[in-house]
Design a protein around this nucleic acid. Structure first.
Lengths: 201, 201, 201, 201
DNA sequence: GGATAAGCGAGACGGTACGTCACGTCTTCCT
DNA sequence: AGGAAGACGTGACGTACCGTCTCGCTTATCC
């Protein structure tokens, strides 16, 4: 692995500037949402020139993605209680609280829409926002599988779709609440789908 | 029922113009997607003035909504085979085919994102796009309930979330296929959740 | 002379409506000036439909002209003291006061500019605004001539140009005051130009 | 004297673009008059974006002013024959010819009307169009004064009003000709007003 | 250490679309 | 037929951002 910096000629990119831009983007996203985010706004907020932004990000979608993905990933809950139902409840509860208290839904729906017009962005979106969340949940399921709580044959992919799908559907399309009651019922349904410990006999 | 002819004063709104605008909007939506839709583009395509559009629709979101909702509703499958599994399969298959072959996903994601910035739009979106689809599915479940295929106590709302949620999640967020295999597995999962006729006796 | 009204078919033109429109126009002219005058504004102010206005006046210029010409003409001073200098002073003083206290300059400059784009309007403007004023002054000069205060050979046209020219020039182009001092000096200059009674000896 | 190169930050204003805009404006003014001048028209004619025009000029009036003032000033006659009457005749003749053969009257009346709605514009108009012309004439009168052709006590301001006033009055308000005969009579009147060489004795 | 490259802030520039305003014409109903 | 209401196509408005481009200046590496 050649991890030495490439030692390119010319003035190196300022990491400070890069962070300032990402922070400004996040602040604006949280404050006014994705639609209202503009490159010019970020430039002003960050005290940075537009060209500097365009040098490193191709569009506001790409910028928003990078800015928000990190902060979103950092907040992902990672419960490990040793019990599937408890893990699901804890994860669901904390995850839904995030969705309730941050601008995440707004931003994700904006990015999802933008992704339809830009394949590269779609790629980044799925990697930065979707896979991360799926992986977190996957760990829970795999641990449950190792403990024998769910059958080894369980279709994990499908289970993940069934966990996240209804949550986002309610949030983005129905405007329905993502409260404790919902989480409880949702986890119950998940267990119904998962708990097939092979009745043996 | 307000069936009185409005008997309003002044020149009445031209229905021909209205239809032309809606048709032009649909054509542009299908051709270039929601992001690329502009009021000016619709005006030109329809041979209509911008002001006429603004007179009746407050934004491109509202226009796209009305234009697309009708055409989308008209295409909703309404199977009635007398068997829950068959109904689900038929509905799922046809519904997913629509999502695969039209610009519906693009448009819905655009509208969903726009709905976050406009409560009135959100309202219209849920009524025009979401409720319609839910109702279609609800009829299937209710008929199954009457036939005793599913328990009367079944939480229909939750079932609907579980049906639509994963479909849109795969489509908008994961970019995952909505093919026949998926539909079959998905319907199977739905049956698992629903078929709890409490064998009792 | 057949002075009976033509007795045309259909509902006759409403004189009340006509007057309402002219009054509304004058009010708006005085309040906001010529530039800000719009047909739609007049229609609203007068509680009248746009078509009614267009039925009788071809443009806002023509309307403004008719509306303002009458009210302006009514205010023209007509001094008759039996002495040229006194008449000139009185007329000048009162005329300039009108120009100072009403929107007349604004309106006249607007109309003069509009007249360059419309020959019919130019015609009407000269007749309604310019000739009227010239005639008033002309009477003064003619009476002076009859009294022998100025030579019969005096070029009246030229004298009128010399009287009105500087006033409007100061007002419209220079933004210079049209106060008592100016009027006095101006009248003095006029007398210098006019009083050539050829002392004969 | 601010001769330091401004050393401003950012991309400097393109002088080429500026000139292109001014030239396009003049062309359109001369061709279609002031009323028909539109910012969009100038932008198209000059191959320039609207925003660039709005960046530097606040209104079509301001633009027309700057565009036309320079070209008008460049054409001002500056006779110096050593004789007042000859200077006046030459200046009057040439000046009136300009007014006859160019769109100047149209443009000036438009600007004068616009100046009533905008004090800054009025200021610029007086400086760009009016003072320039007055100064030219003033030089003629001052030279005559030095030569003793007119009394030192002559009110120059008033003389200038008497020179320009009737010309513009005939042009803008009366639509009366500004021909050689008029100029001769006008100059004669001016001399009557000016030539007061103190009869001594 | 001087040449050579970028990085960077500022901001001008050609564009596109916005949403608004008033235009002048029209269509409908009412008087 | 006159008239009020108001829909309509048209054209320009002035604004907001877009993404690109020149500037002058700074900060590095390379010869």
């Amino acid at each position: 692995m050649n991890n030495r910096p490439p030692a390119r000629r010319g003035r190196p990119r300022s990491q400070a500037t890069r962070q300032t831009i990402l922070r400004a983007t996040n602040a604006l996203l949280e404050a006014h949402g994705y639609t209202a985010l503009t490159i010019e706004g970020v430039a002003e907020q960050a005290g940075v020139s537009k060209s500097t932004i365009y040098r490193w990000w191709a569009s506001k979608a790409e910028l928003a993605m990078e800015a928000y993905a990190a902060s979103a990933a950092a907040r992902l809950p990672l419960p490990d209680t040793g019990d599937l139902a408890a893990d699901l409840l804890a994860f669901g509860e904390q995850f839904c609280q995030l969705l309730r208290t941050t601008s995440t839904p707004k931003i994700m729906s904006g990015l999802a829409a933008a992704a339809f017009d830009d394949q590269a962005l779609a790629q980044a979106f799925r990697h930065g926002f979707i896979s991360t969340r799926r992986t977190a949940m996957q760990h829970i399921l795999e641990r449950a599988s190792e403990r024998g709580e769910i059958a080894a044959s369980t279709n994990i992919e499908q289970a993940l779709d069934h966990f996240y799908g209804p949550i986002f559907y309610r949030l983005l399309f129905r405007g329905a609440p993502i409260d404790t009651l919902f989480v409880q019922q949702h986890v119950q349904a998940m267990l119904t789908l998962l708990e097939r410990p092979a009745p043996s006999s």
